[in-house]
Design a protein around this nucleic acid. Structure first.
Lengths: 354, 354
DNA sequence: CAGGATCGTCGATACGCATCGACGATCACG
DNA sequence: CGTGATCGTCGATGCGTATCGACGATCCTG
C-alpha cells in the first residue's frame, strides 16, 4: 500500500496554499478592499476595474476563506438543517426533502450543515454560539416539540416544518393536510362512494405528537359529512398484517359494494393485499392515497393520489428563509397546497366531473 | 400576525453578543492565551488555573467562534458528506448511513456539512478552497466516478464509500460483498439446495457502474461452483411485475423441488408474490436476502438475511477518517464484513450445521 | 546557596476578509 | 474658470482564536 510516494509525479498541486484576496489584489493591481467590494457589490466599482479583478479571480480560481468571511462579515453562508430521527417508513420522502433543501441553498451560494434530531435542542444553542449557521430549518416538528422553546430563544432565523402547539412568533410551514383530506374525500365522493374507509396512520405516530393526523382527520370527517358520505377511520399499523385486518373489517364480505378506500401510507401493501383477494383498484373498487408521486406511480395500478410534494415544501421553506435573512418576513403559518393527480385506481364516472 | 412586538417581555436574551475567549479570560482573571491553552491542552496548565477557566467557561456558556478558530487554527471541525443522488429504492439504508456519520462526527465534537452528488466534483474543490471542511466522505462511489479524480487532486483527506476502478492512493471502504455472497450461497447449499436462483439488481444499477454487482455475482458463482450447486442469475427490475416474471422463470411449475431463492433487494415484493402463489418461505422453499436487518424483520416471514450493516460501514469510515486527521493511515481498501442472521425463511436441516 | 532546568503564564502577532473614513479624480453648473 | 458634488479607490482597523517567544517563579542538583 504505497502512500506519500516521493517519486510520484501525479501530485503537483498539493500543499500549495489557497490564494487569498490579497493575491487577487496583487494580480489585478488594485487594493484588497477593492477586491472585496467587487465581490460584494457594496460600493460602486468602474467596469474596467471590475473586469481586472474578475479576471484575476478566475486566473487564481480564488474563493474566499469561509472562516475569515464569517469572522469579519458576521455571516457564514451556511444553513443548518435539523433532520428527523431515522424512521424507515418515511425515509423516501425525507431524503427528497433534504436534497431539495441543499439544492435551494446552493442556488444561493449557501451550504447546509446537517444536524441530527437526537442531539436535540442543544444543537441549536451550539450552532448559534459557535456562529456556524445564519439560519436553521427544523424538520418534522411535532405538537409538543422540545426544540421549539429553544428555537424561540435562539437569536437565529428558524423555519419549522410542522406545526407546534404554540407557534406565536415562529415561522412554520407544512403541507396543507386539511385540503389534502378534502381533495381525497371529494375524489371518492365524486366517484359515487356512499362510504369511505380510511386506513389512517399507526397509533405510534399519533402518540408521538404528529399533529397533522388530527388535522387531516378532522378535515376528512367534515368534508365527508358535508358530502353526505359515511367516513370510517381505522388506525392500523402499516404492516401487511395491519392492512389485512383493515380490509377484513371494511370490505363487503358479499363482494358487493365496497366502500371507497383511502390510505395515507404504504399504499403498496394495500395494493398487494387487494390483488390477493382478486380485487383490482379502478375495476372492482376505488382507492386513493396520500403519498409521493413516485410511490403512486410505482404501484401495479397507478394510484390516484394526493402528493405531499416534499420538494415544494422545501423550496418554499428556503425561499421564506432567505426572505427572512435579508429583511423581515412575517412570523406566520404557511400551508403548501397538496396536489391531486388522477391515475387509474378510481373508476371513472362521467357525471360530476368537469 | 404579530412580530417584533416591543412589549413582549419574552425576549430577554436576544441580541446579546456571544461571549469570547477574552470574556472568559477576564472572568477567570487570566490571559486570553491561557484560556486557549486550557481548551486545547497544548501547554501544561496548573490545576488551579484550569479550574478557574473551566468555571468561567461554564458560567458564560462560552463556545469558541467557529470562523475565528478556522482562520487561526487551520481546521474547521467539520466533515463534508457527499450524499448520493436521490434514489427511492435505497433511501432507507442511506438515511441510516448518513445519520450514523453525523453521530460519529458529533462524538468527536465535529459537524457534518451536507454536499450533494449533483453538484459533482466541483463541490470538493469548493469546500477545499473555502476551507469549509477538514475532510470529506463520498458515498456510493462507482467504477468510473468523476469525483474520484478530484478527490485525488484535492488536498483533503477523503474516504470513498465504494470501489472505483483505480483506487491507487485512495482510501476506500465498502461492504464485503464477496463474503456476503458466499454466506448466502452457503446458507442455501447447507439447506440442501441443488440449484439457486438469484434475483439480482436491476440492469440500470449495473449500467450505472455499481461495481459491487459484479463482485457479488462472481463470488456467488464461484462459491456455488465450489459447492456443486447450479446458480441461475436473473437481473430483473425490482417491481412487482419483475418479481413475478422472475418467479415464473425459476419456480418448478409442478410444485415439486423449488430452487433456493436469493434476492438482493426489495424482499417484500418477493414475499408477497410467493404468498399469492401459496408458497411460504421456510415451509415450501428457502429464501435468503441481502438487505438491512430492519427490512428482514419487517417481512411476514422474517428472513434469513445478510445485512450490509450501514451503521458499521459509517462507523468504520469515520474511525478511519479521524485516524487520517491525526497522523497518517494507509491508503487501502477496507471491506466491512457482512453478517448473516438466521431467521425463519430457510427450512432447518440438522446435518451440515454446527 | 548558587546554578540551570522546568513549569506556568503572559503579551504580541497573524490568520483572511469586510467595512469605514479619507481622498484624488472627474464632472456639472454657475 | 472656480466650486461643489459625485464617483471610484485606497489604507487602516477589527473580527476571535491559535501559537510563538519571552519571562518570572519554582524546583532540583551539586
Amino acid at each position: 500500500m504505497r502512500i506519500d510516494d516521493p517519486g510520484d509525479a501525479a501530485v503537483p498541486a498539493r500543499r500549495r496554499p489557497a490564494p487569498t484576496s490579497k493575491d487577487v489584489a496583487r494580480v489585478a493591481g488594485v487594493s484588497q478592499s477593492t477586491v472585496s467590494y467587487v465581490m460584494s457589490g457594496k460600493r460602486p466599482i468602474s467596469e474596467a476595474t471590475r473586469r481586472l479583478v474578475l479576471d484575476a479571480i478566475a486566473e487564481l480560481t480564488y474563493e474566499p476563506h469561509a472562516g475569515a468571511r464569517a469572522l469579519a462579515g458576521h455571516r457564514t453562508k451556511v444553513v443548518g438543517l435539523m433532520m428527523p430521527l431515522h424512521d424507515a417508513e418515511s425515509a423516501g420522502g425525507l431524503m427528497e426533502f433534504a436534497e431539495e433543501i441543499a439544492i435551494q441553498a446552493r442556488r444561493r451560494d449557501h451550504d447546509v450543515l446537517m444536524l441530527t434530531a437526537d442531539e436535540g435542542p442543544s444543537a441549536l444553542a451550539r450552532v448559534q454560539r459557535r456562529a456556524m449557521c445564519d439560519a436553521v430549518v427544523i424538520m418534522q416538528v411535532i405538537t409538543d416539540d422540545p426544540r421549539v422553546a429553544t428555537a424561540r430563544e435562539v437569536d437565529l432565523p428558524v423555519i419549522l416544518i410542522g406545526v407546534p402547539a404554540d407557534r406565536d412568533g415562529l415561522h412554520c410551514i407544512d403541507v396543507d393536510f386539511e385540503s389534502a383530506a378534502e381533495l381525497l374525500v371529494d375524489e371518492l365522493a365524486d366517484a359515487s362512494a356512499r362510504e369511505i374507509a380510511v386506513l389512517g396512520w399507526a397509533q405510534e405516530w399519533d402518540d408521538a405528537g404528529a399533529n397533522f393526523i388530527p388535522r387531516f382527520r378532522a378535515s376528512a370527517a367534515a368534508r365527508a359529512a358535508a358530502r353526505g358520505v359515511a367516513l370510517r377511520w381505522v388506525g392500523a399499523p402499516h404492516t401487511r398484517g395491519g392492512v389485512e385486518a383493515f380490509l377484513d373489517a371494511v370490505l363487503d364480505p358479499d363482494g358487493g359494494a365496497h366502500p371507497g378506500l383511502l390510505t395515507v401510507q404504504s399504499p403498496h401493501h394495500v395494493g398487494a393485499a387487494l390483488q390477493q383477494r382478486g380485487l383490482l383498484p379502478g375495476r372492482d373498487l376505488d382507492l386513493v392515497s396520500l403519498c409521493t408521486d413516485a410511490e403512486a406511480e410505482r404501484q401495479p395500478v397507478p394510484l390516484t393520489a394526493v402528493s405531499t410534494q416534499p420538494r415544494c415544501v422545501s423550496a418554499e421553506a428556503m425561499a421564506w428563509l432567505f426572505d427572512l435573512l435579508d429583511g423581515d418576513a412575517p412570523a406566520e403559518l404557511r400551508l403548501v397546497p397538496a396536489r391531486l393527480t388522477r391515475r387509474a385506481s378510481v373508476r371513472p364516472i362521467k357525471e360530476n366531473r368537469p
